[in-house]
């Protein structure tokens, strides 16, 4: 299933990625190959098979509503490019 150059650019824009022409072409090929591989599944007769949302056959994994320690502020901001006191600072959104 070949995807188009425009589709690659659209997805890149949604992810705020800037791609060179060569990258657009490379990702177009790679994304097409991924879709081809996944579409193999549709060759099977899946009539009556419920869609799988998770590979593990488990359900109801949850935790009790009990607070646990948070990160110290120094750790919270350790990787932040910019901060303003106790707030993260980003370019205007």
């Amino acid at each position: 299933m070949a995807i188009t150059r425009e589709e690659v650019l659209h997805v890149a824009r949604l992810a705020r990625l800037e791609l060179s022409d060569a990258e657009v072409e490379r990702f177009r090929e790679q994304l097409s190959a991924i879709l081809d591989a996944v579409s193999k599944v549709s060759e099977l007769d899946l009539h009556g098979v419920p869609p799988t949302s998770h590979p593990l056959d488990v359900a109801n994994v949850w935790a009790e509503d009990e607070p646990r320690p948070c990160l110290p502020l120094d750790d919270v901001f350790a990787n932040a490019p910019d901060r303003d006191g106790e707030l993260f600072r980003t370019p205007p959104a």
């Binding site: 009990e66 607070p67 646990r68 948070c70 990160l71 919270v76």
Partner: peptide
Amino acid sequence: RTKMFCRCPVEYAAVPNSNTCPVCL
């Protein structure tokens, strides 16, 4: 008492970013 997918406390008027952890960050 805690958030939807991590156990950071839910509080109004806490010090900004003090109720955070690797999951919600």
